[in-house]
Design a binder for these strands. Structure first.
Lengths: 123, 123
DNA sequence: TCTATAATGCGAATGCATTTGCATTATAGA
DNA sequence: TCTATAATGCAAATGCATTCGCATTATAGA
């Protein structure tokens, strides 16, 4: 039977409070603030479990590596600020489906990763 | 002084003949057809060198991992066919810059990875 | 409260792409 | 042709994220 533990609750809390995808480093860091004995193997076990239950989504960022985020956010893309190193969720989709592929091709999935300077770093 | 070797010529030839990005496996496979003693360490050394000379570009595909391709292809994106497992270069760009980010953000780079079924696999 | 066992913490192990040390080979310039 | 040394092949080493084995802890239901 599935049990509710401090560590899993802590991990879930981090994602609920956070609106951006997180890497293992950040998850560990924030997690230890909540449960100071929190172990990396435990975090991986829980991430895996939360992904297979469909609560989290695992994404593979081309420069940041593996990140996890809440699965229920709907379709969106990500912007990475090269200055403050923050990730931003970008609601909606900026893919022009018509221009994307030659006639006869069928798109099933797509990912868009943007990077640059965010609003607050530009000022 | 830089020397021209059979193995480097072979690697360059593979990329020139090929219009799609290649992973280490494919590079090794095709490379061995040209120089049958070709070693993986040699391939990595040459890929690294060709990237830092600006002749190749190293890309990080979210599902296929590290791929290399000719640097001079200009801006374009990639389509991966889930059926025949082929990569296709898609000339041009289907990013709608206006819809992509909120006002005040500045895009410096972006990558788009598409996947689905290619034209020949649909028939 | 008691108890079976799910989940944790720990450290070691794994898997993988990539790199390195070193003896050997082969290229380019003398 | 000869020779210095760049580049190779090989096997071992590295770095890294992720997983595993196992003793210990703590949760949920009796």
């Amino acid at each position: 039977m599935k049990r509710e533990t401090e560590q899993r609750k802590a991990i879930e809390k981090i994602f609920i409070q956070q609106e951006k995808p997180l890497g293992i480093g950040e998850i560990m860091e924030r997690g230890r603030e909540l449960v100071n004995t929190l172990n990396q193997a435990t975090v991986y076990r829980n991430l895996k479990r939360l992904v297979s239950s469909g609560w989290l989504k695992r994404i593979n960022h081309p420069t940041l590596g593996t990140l996890w985020e809440l699965a229920d956010r709907g379709h969106h893309h990500h912007f990475y600020c090269n200055v403050c190193h923050n990730m931003y969720d970008l609601p909606g989709c900026a893919l022009d489906q018509k221009k994307a592929v030659p006639a006869g091709f069928e798109i099933e999935e797509h990912e868009i990763f943007l990077s640059g300077t965010c609003k607050s770093c530009l000022h």
